[in-house]
Design a protein around this nucleic acid. Sequence first.
DNA 1: CGGAATCCCAGGCGATACTG
DNA 2: CAGTATCGCCTGGGATTCCG
Lengths: 120, 120
Amino acid sequence: MVVSLAQIRETSGEVFMEGCPTRVVLDHIMSKWGVLVLLALTDGTLRWGELRREVQGISEKMLASTLRTLEADGLVARTSYPEVPPRVEYALTDLGRELMDRMLPLVEWVAGHADAIVER
Amino acid sequence: MVVSLAQIRETSGEVFMEGCPTRVVLDHIMSKWGVLVLLALTDGTLRWGELRREVQGISEKMLASTLRTLEADGLVARTSYPEVPPRVEYALTDLGRELMDRMLPLVEWVAGHADAIVER
DNA sequence: CGGAATCCCAGGCGATACTG
DNA sequence: CAGTATCGCCTGGGATTCCG
């Protein structure tokens, strides 16, 4: 797939306008914790506690609100099992996987160049 | 290029650790204004005033600090011409273009799905 | 024109405690 | 275990003014 900025302008000519839907979604998925949570779930389904441990440094509050946002966006699916003690699992939806197919190459590139970039 | 989370873990096994360089760079380029500025420069060289008008809603303070960060990261090049009135141009570096090659497919996808996502 | 400096505020975010 | 509730900090970020 060839992609150009012109195409983006056609698809959503408002990317650079305030209140544009694209900006809203970008804010969700490109946020500090959004990417890390999505990234963690790329491995597969995780429970609340596993996510909390995986994404080091995230507070319970931010994990909760990040997950709620991503679930509302239809990118993450929450499954609650009626057990005692309670068990809740989070996984990417099909939409979420589509998204991560596009995001992984970017993160991969950043991971490969981050050291060179920050040591300037 | 096939990309997996496993590869990312190999390249930078610390993505999920606090203070990891990858997190720092991600914070720069995936920030609210970082993406929009990089996106605007994908079209080509722009002057300060053009950038300010292109990225609607950005304040002078945020434009300045965003540009300084991206320039320090080696993703954006700043060229100042010794004229009166002063003229300053910003453009992507080779590194910045490499980055945007990976980011454009992602933004393109988001632009195409944003409406469906936010109207939930 | 292209910024830098200053002031100031909302709310993002962390820490802690509590609950079903 | 998987959250919610509450409090309070601190800083991201807007508005304004000034400078080379």
